[in-house]
Design a protein around this nucleic acid. Structure first.
Lengths: 239, 239
DNA sequence: GTTCCAATGTGACAGTCGTCACAGAGAAAG
DNA sequence: CTTTCTCTGTGACGACTGTCACATTGGAAC
C-alpha cells in the first residue's frame, strides 16, 4: 500500500509516473519538456492549504504524491468534502481556465508533492500543445463522472448507512489491499470528515461504523480498517 | 419568457444563437462551417430519449432549443435527476470523448431541436480545430461547477425544505421573468421529478410547496409559479 | 511517564421525512 | 360530455438521524 512517507522526489515530470500516466499519456517528450519549463515543484506537509474557495485563480496544482481533500464551506461554517484528490490529478483546473474564483478549497491530508503552474503559463501551454487539451478534457470528464456518481448516491441512497457503505466500498477499490482476510485500508479521514463527505453527523458515522463492526462486516483498529465481508457491505450500499 | 413552441428552425449553426454564443464564441467562420458539415439536425417531441445510461456512445447532441433532463437510474428503478440541460449545452460529451458508455440518460422535457455529431467525426473535429477544445473545457468546467454546487447543497442543506428553496431560487434566476409582483416562471418538472432532483419524496415536495404558498412566499396555479418573496426564500435556502 | 487535546463511543430525545393510503383536480382522448 | 389516467393534496405513523451531553480513548509533545 502507498505510504504517505515514501515521496520519491523527482525534479522533472518526465519521471513522475502519475503525471506521465494521466496528463501526458501518449504525448511526445517535447510536450513534457515544455511542461517542465513552466512548472515549479513544492512539498507540502499534512494539512497545508493549496488554495481557498473565493480566491482569484493563481494557477493549477498537479498532485504528484499524497492526497488532498477538496471542500466547500458555507457562510455559517458548515463544510462539505466534495471529493478526495489522488496523485496525478490536476487541482484548480476549472477556475484557472474560466478565470473565475476557485470554487473549492484544496487542503492536503497527507504530506504532498505538487507541481504548480501559473495561470497564464498554463493557458499558453494549452494553446501551444493542443494535444494536452484533449487530456484535460478526459480528466474533466472523469471528475464529472465521479461527481455525478456522488449526486446519484445522495439522491438515491436516502440513509446515511447506504452512503457510508458505498464510500467504504469505493475506498476499498481505490486504495485497499486485498488479503485473504479481506480488504485492508487506512482511513484517510476522521469520522468528522467522513461525515462531511456523506452528509451526516459525526455521531452517526461513529454509530454506523460501530454497527458494521458489531456485525462482523468490518474490523477497526485506530485508523486501520479491514473489510471482512464486502458482499454484505455491497448489500448495505444498495448495489 | 422562452416558450417551448417557438422553435426557430435553423439549418446551419451559424445562425443558431445558442450554439454561436457558447460552443463557438469568438471562433472563425471556418470552424462553424466545419461543424455544419458533420452535424445533423433533428427535432424531438417532449419526452423523447436522446441516449440511455449504459449505451455505447454514438456521439454528442448539441441542444439548440428546448430543455432536457439528465438522469441516473439504479437497478431497483430509483431515478435521480442530475441536472437540467438548457439550449447551447452539449450532451453526451464525457462518454463520447472517453469512449465509455453514457453514464446518464438524456430525455427531453419540452419539444427540442438538437444537432447530432457522430463520435469519430467529433473527435476528428476537435483535433482539427484545437480552439474548440478550449471551449469544450470551459463548458465542462461550468458543468462541473454546477455539479459541485449540487453536491454541496446535498451535503450541507440537510432539510428538504432548504434544498427545494434553493432549487426554486436557482430556477427563478435562470428562467424567471421579473415583474413588480415577483418572479414568474413555469415549473419545468412535475412534483415527482422535483423530488428526484432534491432527493426527497413526491409527498414532501407537495407539502413543502403548499407550506410556502400558505406563507405567502410563493403562488401556484397549475405549473405556473410566482415567487412573491425571494428574500424569505433565500432565508429558507440557508443563503 | 505525564499532560493535554483531538478523536471517538454512546445515551436520550425531538424533529424531519419516507411510506402507505386515498381523495380530489386537471388534462388529454374518445 | 364522459372516460381515463396522471398529477396533486393530505392524514397517520414510524424509522432515521441530528443535536446535546458526557465519558473514554489515543496519540503527540514535553
Amino acid at each position: 500500500m502507498r505510504s504517505p512517507y515514501d515521496l520519491e522526489i523527482s525534479e522533472t515530470c518526465s519521471v513522475c509516473r502519475f503525471c506521465a500516466e494521466r496528463l501526458f499519456r501518449n504525448l511526445p517528450a517535447s510536450t513534457l519538456h515544455a511542461f517542465d519549463a513552466i512548472k515549479s515543484l513544492s512539498l507540502y506537509p499534512k494539512g497545508a492549504t493549496l488554495f481557498v474557495e473565493g480566491q482569484q485563480p493563481r494557477g493549477v496544482y498537479v498532485l504528484c504524491a499524497g492526497r488532498a481533500k477538496l471542500t466547500a464551506s458555507s457562510p455559517e461554517g458548515k463544510t462539505v468534502i466534495v471529493r478526495l484528490a489522488e496523485p496525478g490529478e490536476v487541482l484548480g483546473l476549472s477556475a484557472t481556465i474560466s478565470g473565475e474564483p476557485y470554487h473549492l478549497t484544496a487542503e492536503t491530508i497527507e504530506p504532498c508533492q505538487a507541481d504548480f503552474v501559473r495561470r497564464d503559463d498554463f493557458l499558453r501551454y494549452l494553446r501551444e500543445q493542443p494535444e494536452v487539451s484533449l487530456r484535460v478534457i478526459e480528466m474533466l470528464s472523469e471528475i464529472l463522472r465521479t461527481a455525478h456518481a456522488q449526486i446519484r448516491s445522495f439522491g438515491k441512497a436516502h440513509s446515511a448507512a447506504e452512503r457510508l457503505a458505498g464510500l467504504l466500498l469505493c475506498w476499498g477499490e481505490r486504495m485497499g489491499d486485498r488479503t485473504q482476510e479481506g480488504i485492508h485500508l487506512k482511513l484517510p479521514l476522521t469520522h468528522q470528515e467522513i461525515a462531511q463527505m456523506i452528509g451526516a453527523s459525526r455521531e452517526t458515522v461513529s454509530r454506523l461504523l460501530g454497527e458494521l463492526r458489531h456485525q462482523q462486516i468490518i474490523s477497526l483498529n485506530g485508523s486501520g480498517l479491514l473489510i471482512r465481508n464486502s458482499d454484505a457491505l455491497s448489500v448495505k450500499a444498495g448495489h
